[in-house]
Computed example of a mutant assay.
Amino acid sequence: MQQRRLLEVWGDTVDGRHLLGAIGLGVGIAVPVYLIAEWGFDRLTGGDALGRSYALVIGLAACVIAAVVAANLFKPKRVVTIGESANGSRAEAMDAIEAELGPLGDPDDLPPAALAEVKELGLYDDLAAQHRKNRLAAAEGGER
């Protein structure tokens, strides 16, 4: 099996041949549609700027149609892995945030709407654990 040449474009991974195919599809659809629309509006309006503007709008609509067709023909080549993150990665991230911004505080002190969102995102337990860790560290620091 031949190895694919994958490229990253706007945060997505694509096959280089598919990218060229999508570009060709866009040019192949949008340019002729624009030129036909320009010719048609030129005949209808006598070549004024309004006719060229309408032709441009139709050409842009053809670009969108070409993009939809290309997106359906050439799917992204991303690899999605679903599973548990490495143990402690959230705690390490919160430690880094606190190092930069200071203590995060008690999540129960958040306004009700923010608290509901934190719980919905599954971050409440992590924030509460971080707050407990900070309280223990402060208590240990105060005993010395």
Rank of each mutant, 00 (worst) to 15 (best):
residue 1 M to L: 07
residue 4 R to Q: 13
residue 5 R to H: 09
residue 7 L to P: 04
residue 7 L to I: 13
residue 7 L to Y: 04
residue 8 E to L: 04
residue 8 E to K: 10
residue 9 V to P: 04
residue 10 W to K: 07
residue 12 D to W: 14
residue 12 D to G: 10
residue 13 T to H: 06
residue 14 V to N: 03
residue 16 G to H: 05
residue 16 G to N: 03
residue 18 H to F: 12
residue 18 H to Y: 07
residue 19 L to V: 12
residue 19 L to N: 05
residue 20 L to T: 01
residue 21 G to C: 03
residue 21 G to Y: 13
residue 21 G to N: 04
residue 22 A to L: 10
residue 22 A to V: 10
residue 22 A to R: 14
residue 25 L to W: 10
residue 25 L to Q: 12
residue 28 G to S: 05
residue 29 I to C: 03
residue 30 A to C: 15
residue 30 A to Y: 13
residue 33 V to P: 02
residue 34 Y to D: 08
residue 35 L to V: 02
residue 37 A to N: 09
residue 38 E to H: 15
residue 38 E to V: 05
residue 38 E to A: 15
residue 39 W to N: 12
residue 39 W to Y: 12
residue 40 G to F: 12
residue 41 F to H: 06
residue 41 F to S: 00
residue 41 F to K: 04
residue 43 R to H: 10
residue 45 T to N: 06
residue 49 A to D: 06
residue 50 L to W: 12
residue 50 L to Y: 11
residue 52 R to Q: 13
residue 52 R to S: 11
residue 52 R to N: 11
residue 52 R to K: 15
residue 53 S to W: 13
residue 53 S to T: 07
residue 53 S to C: 01
residue 53 S to H: 10
residue 56 L to V: 11
residue 57 V to G: 13
residue 57 V to W: 13
residue 58 I to V: 14
residue 58 I to D: 05
residue 60 L to C: 14
residue 61 A to N: 08
residue 62 A to F: 06
residue 62 A to K: 11
residue 63 C to N: 13
residue 64 V to I: 00
residue 65 I to Y: 09
residue 67 A to K: 00
residue 67 A to H: 02
residue 67 A to L: 01
residue 68 V to E: 10
residue 68 V to T: 03
residue 69 V to I: 15
residue 70 A to W: 03
residue 71 A to T: 10
residue 71 A to H: 12
residue 73 L to Y: 03
residue 74 F to P: 03
residue 74 F to M: 08
residue 75 K to N: 08
residue 75 K to S: 10
residue 75 K to D: 07
residue 76 P to D: 08
residue 76 P to F: 03
residue 78 R to G: 06
residue 78 R to A: 08
residue 78 R to W: 05
residue 79 V to D: 13
residue 79 V to I: 15
residue 82 I to W: 11
residue 83 G to F: 11
residue 84 E to P: 10
residue 86 A to N: 09
residue 86 A to T: 12
residue 90 R to I: 15
residue 91 A to F: 05
residue 92 E to F: 04
residue 94 M to W: 14
residue 94 M to F: 15
residue 95 D to C: 09
residue 97 I to L: 14
residue 98 E to A: 12
residue 102 G to L: 01
residue 104 L to W: 14
residue 105 G to D: 02
residue 106 D to F: 11
residue 108 D to M: 01
residue 108 D to G: 00
residue 108 D to W: 03
residue 110 L to N: 11
residue 110 L to G: 04
residue 112 P to H: 07
residue 113 A to L: 12
residue 114 A to V: 05
residue 115 L to S: 04
residue 116 A to S: 01
residue 117 E to A: 14
residue 119 K to E: 14
residue 119 K to A: 08
residue 120 E to L: 02
residue 120 E to T: 00
residue 120 E to H: 00
residue 120 E to V: 00
residue 122 G to C: 00
residue 123 L to V: 07
residue 124 Y to W: 09
residue 125 D to G: 02
residue 125 D to Y: 05
residue 126 D to C: 09
residue 126 D to N: 13
residue 126 D to V: 12
residue 127 L to K: 11
residue 128 A to F: 06
residue 130 Q to F: 01
residue 131 H to R: 04
residue 131 H to S: 02
residue 132 R to G: 00
residue 135 R to T: 10
residue 136 L to K: 04
residue 136 L to A: 01
residue 137 A to G: 02
residue 137 A to C: 03
residue 138 A to Y: 08
residue 139 A to W: 09
residue 139 A to Y: 10
residue 140 E to I: 01
residue 141 G to N: 11
residue 141 G to D: 06
residue 142 G to H: 07
residue 143 E to V: 14
residue 143 E to Y: 14
